[in-house]
């Protein structure tokens, strides 16, 4: 039930957006992420964007881990 998948916004239109995931396009609702813009990656749950994806922060977590890995080995 809490499944959500990443999708890229390709069009914004009021409370709606057109998103693309693996080549498939779908119209979704943006009520929970009104400030998201074209080009943003969002998490899609039951036809609604629920969170903005942030790959940079994710990378930082991994880099930190790799640092620990290197230091301890």
């Amino acid at each position: 039930m809490c499944l959500a998948i990443p999708a890229k916004i390709v069009e914004r239109d009021g409370a709606d957006a057109l998103v693309e995931m693996s080549g498939v396009r779908q119209r979704i609702r943006m009520d929970l992420l009104p400030a998201a813009i074209v080009g943003d990656y969002v998490l899609l749950h039951a036809g609604f964007a629920i969170a903005l994806m942030n790959e940079e922060e994710a990378q930082e977590t991994l880099d930190l881990l790799r640092e620990i890995d290197v230091l301890s080995s």
Partner: peptide
């Protein structure tokens, strides 16, 4: 649903 779904 839980808090993931309730705001929708």
């Amino acid at each position: 649903g839980f808090e993931t779904t309730a705001p929708l």
